[in-house]
Simulated scan of single mutants.
Amino acid sequence: MARPTLQDVLNGLQAEGHLAPDAGERARTTMEVYRRTDVATPWFVKALAGFGAWVAAAFLLSFFGCVGLWNEEALLAVLGLIIGGGATLLRRSTRGAFMEQLALALCLAGVAMVQTGIAMMTESEIAPAVIQLVLGAVLLALFPDAILRFLMALGMAGAAVFLLWKGLGELGMQLGLLGGAVLVHWLLLEQARLRRGRWGELVGPVAFALACGVMGALLTLNFAGAFVRELRMHGISTPDAVLTLGLTALTLYTAWRVMKELGLEASGVAGAAVFVALGVTALMTLHTPAVITAVGMMVLGFHRRSAVLLGLAVAFLLAAGGWYYYDLGLTLLAKALALTGSGLVFLGLRLFLLRRFPVAAAEVR
C-alpha cells in the first residue's frame, strides 16, 4: 500500500472535521518554510555551525576566567543571570544552527555561573538546588529549545530528589523517584490532550527527561553499592520493596488505561492475565525496582508508538535484568532455571493473548 501524501492526510482530516477549511493552505506554507530553512541546509553544515557556536561560547567564558571573574562570587552570579537572559532573548529572536547552538551554550553557561556563584556565597548544598528549580522553571517557559528544556527538566528532577533526600533521607529519595515516575506516566498517557494546550511543547522534553532521570537513578542505585549504603545512613531508611510496590501499582494502572483505550476488558481474561504477569514480575524482583520500572516504560513506549522511549526502556531492562541476575543469591544452575522458566511463562502468556484476542493484537501491532 502506497504512503498517503500530505494533501491526502489534510483532506481526510478536513473531511472528518478535525481541521478548519483554511488549514491546508497554512500547512503547505509552513512546510515550504521548513523545507527552505531546515531541510535545505546539509546536516554537516549544521554540525559545523553548532560546533563553532560552542567553541565561541567557551572562548567567551575563558575570557571571564582570565580576568579573575571566578573569584568574585556575587559578580559571577549576576553576570550569569545577564548571560542567561541575553541568550534567551537571542534564541527567541533569531534562527539558524549557529545562533541556536550559541544561545544554548551561553544559557547553560549562565545557569552554571549563577549556581556556582550562589553556592560559593552561601556555602550551602541546598541553595544551588533551589536555584536550579527556579531557573529551570523559568527557562522551561521562556527558552524555546527542546534540548535545553530536556536538560532543565532533568536538572529540576535531580534537584527535587536531592532536597527530598536532605529532608527525609532514603524515604524522601524514594518518594522523589516515585513522583517522577508518576509524572512520566501521566504526561504520556495524557499526551494527546496536553499537546493541544498552552504548554504542549513541554510535554515531550519533560517526559523524556523524567524517564531518563528515573531509570538512570534506579540503575545507578543498583550498581553503586557503597554509595547507596551512605545514602541510607541519612534520615528515614526504607526497604527497596516499598518503592517496588509503588512502581508496580503505577504500572498496573497504566496497563489498565492502555487496555481501556484499546477496547479490551480489564476485568476479563486478558486483564487478569496481564495483571498477574505484572504482579509476578514485581514479586520476583522486589529488591530490584528498576525491573518493574522498565516494564512500565515499555508499556508506555508501545502504547505511544515511541521508538526512542521503547529503545531506552529495552536497554534499561537489559541492564536491570543483568543486575538482578548477578544479585540473586542462587547457584548458576538455579539462576539459569529461573530465567528460563520466567521466559517460558511470558512467551506462553503472549501466545495465549494472541490466540484469545487476535483482533486486538493486530490493532496493537
Score class of each variant (00 low, 15 high):
residue 169 G to H: 00
residue 96 G to V: 09
residue 98 F to Y: 13
residue 175 L to M: 12
residue 123 E to H: 15
residue 103 A to N: 08
residue 113 M to C: 07
residue 159 A to N: 04
residue 136 G to E: 08
residue 136 G to H: 04
residue 125 E to K: 08
residue 141 A to L: 14
residue 109 A to C: 13
residue 168 L to M: 11
residue 170 E to S: 10
residue 97 A to K: 02
residue 165 W to K: 06
residue 152 M to Q: 08
residue 126 I to K: 03
residue 147 I to K: 10
residue 149 R to D: 11
residue 156 M to P: 00
residue 112 A to N: 01
residue 167 G to V: 01
residue 153 A to N: 08
residue 125 E to Y: 08
residue 116 T to P: 00
residue 123 E to L: 13
residue 157 A to V: 03
residue 117 G to H: 09
residue 97 A to T: 04
residue 146 A to K: 12
residue 128 P to S: 09
residue 152 M to I: 06
residue 93 S to P: 05
residue 103 A to M: 05
residue 148 L to I: 09
residue 151 L to F: 15
residue 167 G to T: 02
residue 125 E to H: 10
residue 98 F to E: 03
residue 104 L to I: 15
residue 150 F to N: 03
residue 139 L to Q: 05
residue 143 F to D: 01
residue 171 L to N: 04
residue 130 V to F: 06
residue 126 I to M: 10
residue 170 E to K: 02
residue 157 A to E: 04
residue 108 L to W: 10
residue 160 A to L: 14
residue 107 C to K: 00
residue 101 Q to G: 00
residue 136 G to Y: 04
residue 117 G to C: 11
residue 164 L to K: 01
residue 104 L to W: 06
residue 127 A to D: 09
residue 154 L to A: 13
residue 150 F to I: 06
residue 149 R to S: 14
residue 170 E to D: 12
residue 160 A to S: 14
residue 150 F to W: 10
residue 172 G to M: 05
residue 124 S to L: 11
residue 133 L to S: 05
residue 144 P to V: 15
residue 133 L to D: 04
residue 147 I to C: 06
residue 155 G to Q: 09
residue 115 Q to H: 04
residue 167 G to W: 02
residue 163 L to D: 02
residue 127 A to S: 13
residue 132 Q to E: 12
residue 133 L to V: 13
residue 128 P to Q: 10
residue 158 G to E: 01
residue 170 E to W: 12
residue 162 F to W: 11
residue 122 T to Y: 06
residue 93 S to T: 15
residue 90 L to P: 07
residue 113 M to W: 09
residue 102 L to M: 08
residue 99 M to P: 04
residue 121 M to F: 14
residue 155 G to W: 10
residue 108 L to N: 06
residue 144 P to S: 14
residue 135 L to Q: 03
residue 118 I to R: 00
residue 96 G to K: 07
residue 144 P to I: 15
residue 133 L to A: 03
residue 104 L to F: 12
residue 171 L to K: 07
residue 113 M to N: 03
residue 107 C to A: 15
residue 135 L to I: 11
residue 146 A to D: 13
residue 169 G to D: 03
residue 128 P to G: 09
residue 98 F to L: 08
residue 151 L to Q: 11
